[in-house]
Design a protein around this nucleic acid. Sequence first.
DNA 1: AGACTTTCATTGGCATGCAAACGACCCGCA
DNA 2: TGCGGGTCGTTTGCATGCCAATGAAAGTCT
Lengths: 161, 161
Amino acid sequence: MTAAGDATTGKGPAGEDPQGADPRDGTGYRLTAQAGHLLRRANQRHLAIFSARMPDLTPRQFAALAKLDEEGPASQNQLGRATSMDAATIKGVIDRLARRGLVATEPSQEDRRRLIVSLTEAGAELFARAAPVALEITEETLAPLAPEERRLLTALLDRIS
Amino acid sequence: MTAAGDATTGKGPAGEDPQGADPRDGTGYRLTAQAGHLLRRANQRHLAIFSARMPDLTPRQFAALAKLDEEGPASQNQLGRATSMDAATIKGVIDRLARRGLVATEPSQEDRRRLIVSLTEAGAELFARAAPVALEITEETLAPLAPEERRLLTALLDRIS
DNA sequence: AGACTTTCATTGGCATGCAAACGACCCGCA
DNA sequence: TGCGGGTCGTTTGCATGCCAATGAAAGTCT
């Protein structure tokens, strides 16, 4: 270990307060006990696993390809809603995918505001190769949990989404 | 809200595959069933709640204040590790907090590489007012769950972090 | 002491993510 | 038929978030 004056604050063992309010100090707040912090950390680990296993696609780019594969062509905003990205975000994602030739865009005939996005041949092929890896990523993300716990976590996350 | 909630049973002969692989289509991938997607969506909802309840502070800015209040002054990188932000990210957060006079920075005496960050009077006061709100944010984030489920989710998230 | 390894802070670059503002366009309704 | 409200895509601005590279400063090992 390093001896560079790095007090790791061992703190007390004690029966912790699961809510994060701690009577020991004035404000009663422990960052690491908050749901938001835990969600962020879990997500961070997941993203690290993702980029290690699928270096050529970002999670969002893959999500867009997956949804296009799942549901077929859609307008940009539709696709954004389906993947939980706002209009500004999905635009950047689609632009980058289009620049790589993984998706194609064309204006809609019925509604001239809309920009229809569809998978290209290359995009479909890449997705087909990537999908199994994506399942492995989910697997590795949930690796610390037993099968029963994985289903439970999934269900709980879905309910607070 | 979706049918993914009943994933706790062994299921029948050919029920849903909770892992997200679905034999019905070629690639066998359902985006909305993946842990990463659910983590992201849950986090998204949490961030929305946060910014609605605490418009003057971002989650990361608040986290930095909270950690400083909890552990006292620390170097920038130390604080980053304590709040799970990398060196590049924590720098921006501290810069913005310093510009608002909520934290102060000064070079360390013992180690001239280090930049010691501490709460200012104003920062401590703001945190004192914000901490109760932060607890409410956690509360609202977990509102859809029963107390027992909240503890369970927290524990599961901690294990995959 | 001198070389090698680490750590610290900073910077540049790329990719989200969200809010707000815009112009174009569609639709229901008076 | 014309108009106001809502949608679509775009752009700008700000705040993460991470990687890689860099120079300065410590620490370690011989």
